[in-house]
């Protein structure tokens, strides 16, 4: 019984962790390709989810609303590249980071201006009843979310590893100048990366939106992705997944087993403590790319 309970908490935590990974993925994509920490990723998640529910509330069927939301995110990506990034080429990373903070406010404001400030319910048609496996109660919704995340990661992995554009993306991530010198147009690449990150934000926004309701608080989900990134490494897609799993599981386990001794509420801060500890030991993260230096 004890053991079953332990596993139930563990699996619940792992599945919750996948949800963090989904958000972290968006950060990783942009960081890999442009070295920019995109503070606006949370706002993009919010924007995508809000766009989707609004389209749905206009009576559009699910697939159409989904496509329209995706198109919206691509437009956002292209606009960001044209209006923000292109003007800031070759500026130091901190400048770009500041620009993404600005972008956050623009996106948040824009989303509420266009789609209103109401809290929306998001119905994906996925049942949220617990499923009993081997005596453990596991949320169906979480299972499906994990499946979607897994699919997404595989798709991204194939895209990065085996396609011409994916290879170019990795090349740009390694060395802007060299990429430019062999004729890879940085602007296109950045637009593509932001569009892909927008797509990931849409998936994350839908799943999180179905969980929490589509509301402003969705932007804060991004904060949960930070410890995941620190753990997994800012440059690694698998890192984002594993980091999410570790954070999710340890958070839940800590809450259940350590919580009672310190009065509970551990879940909200435990991840950050874990990340902080990790920073001391392995600052590039579990799967972060080692800096290759020839001496």
């Amino acid at each position: 019984m004890e053991l079953i309970f332990f596993f139930e908490v563990l699996v619940g935590g792992l599945l919750a962790g996948i949800m963090y990974s989904l958000v972290a993925l968006g950060f990783v994509l942009i960081y890999k390709a442009s070295g920019v920490f995109n503070f606006a990723q949370g706002a993009m998640v919010f924007f995508a989810a809000l766009a989707f529910v609004s389209f749905q509330s206009w009576g559009w069927p699910f697939p159409l609303a989904l496509l329209a939301a995706l198109a919206t995110m691509i437009v956002v990506a292209l606009a960001t590249e044209r209006v923000v990034l292109r003007k800031l080429v070759n500026q130091p990373p901190i400048t770009l980071f500041m620009a993404t903070i600005g972008l956050t406010f623009v996106l948040e404001g824009l989303a509420q201006l266009i789609f209103g400030t109401d809290v929306h319910r998001l119905e994906l048609g996925i049942p949220d009843d617990p499923l009993e496996i081997q005596g453990m109660l596991i949320s169906t919704f979480d299972l499906i979310a994990a499946g979607v995340a897994a699919l997404l990661v595989v798709a991204l992995g194939v895209f990065f590893q085996y396609t011409r554009v994916g290879r170019a993306l990795r090349a740009v991530a390694d060395d802007h100048q060299a990429a430019l010198s062999i004729g890879i147009p940085l602007q296109h690449i950045w637009a593509i990366v932001w569009a892909v990150a927008g797509f990931v934000a849409l998936v994350a926004g839908l799943l999180w939106g179905a969980r929490l309701g589509v509301q402003f608080a969705l932007t804060l989900v991004a904060l949960k992705a930070l410890p995941v990134l620190i753990l997994g490494g800012f440059t690694s897609v698998p890192g984002a997944i594993v980091g999410g799993l570790i954070i999710g599981a340890s958070e839940k386990l800590a809450e259940v087993y350590v919580g009672p001794f310190v009065g509970g509420g551990i879940e909200n801060w435990f991840a950050y403590v874990l990340a902080l500890g990790f920073l001391l030991v392995r600052p590039e993260g579990l799967f972060g790319e080692r800096h290759i230096d020839r001496v």
Binding site: A171, D175, I182
Partner: peptide, 21 residues
């Protein structure tokens, strides 16, 4: 040189053909 350090040699070469489709 400016090779792409994290790409394999062959991948480096392949990126060179980016404009060629």
């Amino acid at each position: 040189r400016h090779c792409f350090a994290h790409l394999s040699i062959e991948e480096n070469l392949l990126t060179g053909a980016y404009t060629q489709a």
